[in-house]
Write a protein that binds this DNA or RNA. Structure first.
Length: 606
DNA sequence: ACGTTGTGTCATCAA
DNA sequence: ACTTGATGACACAAC
């Protein structure tokens, strides 16, 4: 920032400058003290003091750990450290140490709490803002001054342990014996739920501050975006420590947040409560409609010590997925669509409802193709996902589009410089392409690509502030569609866009159906081809058999002819010569003995 | 680099 | 006249 240069004697002008800049940056969530050099210097000293205290504390702790290790014995079978048998009766450690030992060995909540205490301390040192917020809200008491008591309290309120895979008993023990601050910090950062909570809070802040926070450009901000997606599973591991930390964030952001955005908070809060204030973590693994829709909404970090910031917001549990579609008479229609969609939504590419023939789209898409468009949230999230830089505004805009009643969207900053009339024949808009090229995520690329295309019309609709959802535009029957259009005053560009969206959407479905039909025809023709080949082979075999049979019969007939001929005798009792006579049969079946000689003579005579 | 595949989109025709 | 479905053709991205 510009205020990094310390001024030993700031004049009134400097103070004014600081004040102005502070006012500019207050939206970033930064407190005024951040820009006060003296204050920061003082804080720096305090921080150094705290670090020294922390170092001492860690040394003491390590001594205790070493002593405990001396009492531990590695179990050959389980690989765990178990207390040595008190054969000699010597108990060098106090009861407190013994309790530590059992904590470590059995990997109990307190052990986690200790680890988290360190992490929280790290956070407090690294994030003066958090600490400042904590001092005002009291939320981070345990962070600022962690004590075993507070730790126990934390864990008592939240029995969920840390993610086990990253903290097996053995490594945990060894890690605890090495008080490497940096490593601890890395471990803290690697906690998925912490990342998630950070992400959540950053997103939350972005919304509440209108997306200004991205200018801080902290690594955490990027990380927040990148790790935003694997939420559903991670959310199940919501940890007390992180949620407490986030509560601190939350408090702070709430203090900073303009009240204008309270409506958005109220909109999102019920979802959060719906899913994470309950113990139904199975919902995460078996997402239902709402879950899927809300995946993009920052979720966890709910109640901690019974203090749920969001719980104070009016809780309307039914104000969830349906609210996304309350903007038109197509409610029932949308609901019908949404019911089908969800589980495979992330894979959905078309998002266009195949209402005419649910099975008609390609086999693996026809079922879920209906849904995601209905929700919009999935594609929204993907837009955020694919474009980290614009994610904030996109997220905000999309939700404002989805939630705002008809015609009440706040005017967007950048608006229609885009020509919607000409769809550019399949060419991708540069901004979208840029967004995709920058996408560093590991999500299924095929899904992302299709969702990019899906979001194209959504993007346009968003840009032109179309007060309908894309799926409504596409899937409503003509009458309902016309009625819906008549209820809103749309300008020419909006009308054209809506018509294009409807045409494209329907044509997309038609193309899918057409291709499916084509594929089915191909398959059917291949089947027919196989059948015909088989019949051809069969007929050829029959023909050869018949030929063979004919040859056999000819042989038999010849044999019979000779036999009959040999039995014929002339008036002298002599047999006829086959070279001079032949047997011929007339049409009525009468057999004559015809002399060949005559024929030959006739022929020669001619 | 090139071919294949999947998908979206446009143009066009027919119902 | 307008809407919609079907389909060929094209562009593009991913593989």
């Amino acid at each position: 920032m510009e205020l990094e240069k310390p001024k030993m004697h700031p004049s009134q002008q400097d103070v004014d400058l600081i004040d102005i800049l502070w006012r500019q940056d207050i939206d970033l969530g930064a407190r005024r003290e951040v820009f006060d050099y003296w204050h920061r210097q003082k804080e720096h000293e305090l921080q150094r003091l705290r670090e020294q205290e922390e170092e001492k504390r860690r040394l003491l702790h390590q001594e205790q750990e070493d002593a405990l290790l001396a009492e531990l014995q590695l179990d050959e079978e389980t690989g765990e450290f178990v207390p040595r048998l008190a054969t000699d009766g010597q108990r060098p450690q106090s009861a407190t140490a013994q309790s530590h030992l059992t904590q470590n060995v059995s990997f109990t909540e307190s052990g986690d709490a200790m680890s988290f205490d360190e992490c929280m301390q790290l956070l407090a040192e690294t994030f003066p803002l958090v600490e400042a917020a904590a001092t005002t809200t009291g939320c981070l008491d345990t962070t600022v001054a962690p004590t075993p008591h507070s730790s126990h309290l934390m864990m008592a309120s939240e029995p969920v342990a840390l993610p086990q895979p990253s903290l097996p008993p053995g490594p945990l023990l060894s890690r605890r014996t090495s008080p490497d601050l940096e490593q601890a910090w890395m471990e803290l950062l690697s906690l998925p739920e912490l990342q998630q909570c950070l992400n959540m809070q950053l997103e939350n802040t972005l919304e509440q501050t209108g997306g200004y926070l991205h200018t801080t450009d902290t690594p955490e901000a990027h990380e927040a975006n990148y790790s935003f997606y694997p939420l559903p599973v991670l959310a199940s591991n919501t940890d007390v420590g992180s949620s407490e930390l986030i509560n601190a964030f939350d408090e702070r952001f709430t203090n900073v947040a303009p009240h204008d955005h309270l409506s958005e908070m109220t909109l999102k809060a019920p979802d959060q409560n719906t899913h994470y204030s309950k113990d139904a973590f199975s919902d995460v693994f078996y997402p239902d409609i709402i879950n899927t829709k809300v995946t993009g909404v920052p979720l966890p970090c709910v109640e901690e010590n019974g203090v749920n910031l969001l719980a104070e917001i009016p809780n309307e549990s039914e104000f969830t997925a349906m609210e996304l579609h309350d903007l038109s008479p197509g409610d029932v229609f949308d609901r019908g669509i949404k019911i089908e969609l969800i589980p495979e939504c992330p894979d959905s590419d078309s998002g266009v409802s195949v209402e005419t023939s649910p099975q008609s789209s390609s086999p693996d898409k026809s079922t879920y193709g209906d849904g995601c468009f209905g929700g919009n949230s999935d594609s929204d999230m993907d837009e955020m996902d694919m474009n980290p830089e614009s994610a904030d505004s996109d997220y905000y805009e999309m939700f404002s589009l989805s939630f705002q009643p008809d015609g009440l969207q706040p005017p967007l900053a950048e608006l229609p410089q885009q020509n919607d009339k000409k769809p550019q024949h399949g060419k991708t808009e540069p901004d979208e392409e840029a967004g995709y090229n920058q996408s560093p995520f590991t999500k299924d690329k095929k899904t992302r690509r299709s969702e990019k295309r899906l979001s194209r019309d959504e993007q346009r609709a968003k840009t032109l502030q179309i007060p309908f959802t894309v799926d409504m535009i596409i899937n409503l029957p003509v009458d309902d569609f016309n009625e819906m259009m008549s209820k809103h005053q749309l300008n020419e560009a909006q009308l054209a866009l809506v018509r294009d969206i409807r045409r494209r959407g329907k044509n997309k479905v038609a193309a899918q159906n057409c291709r499916k039909r084509k594929m089915e025809n191909i398959v059917e023709l291949e089947y027919d081809l196989d059948s015909l080949k088989e019949e051809k082979e069969r007929l050829q075999k029959e023909k050869s058999e018949n030929s063979s049979s004919v040859r056999q019969m000819k042989l038999q007939l010849n044999t019979l002819y000779l036999e009959v001929f040999s039995l014929l005798r002339d008036e002298k009792g002599k047999p006829y010569s086959p070279s001079e006579y032949s047997l011929q049969q007339t049409t009525d079946g009468t057999v004559f003995l015809v002399p060949r000689v005559k024929n030959t003579l006739k022929k020669t005579g001619n």
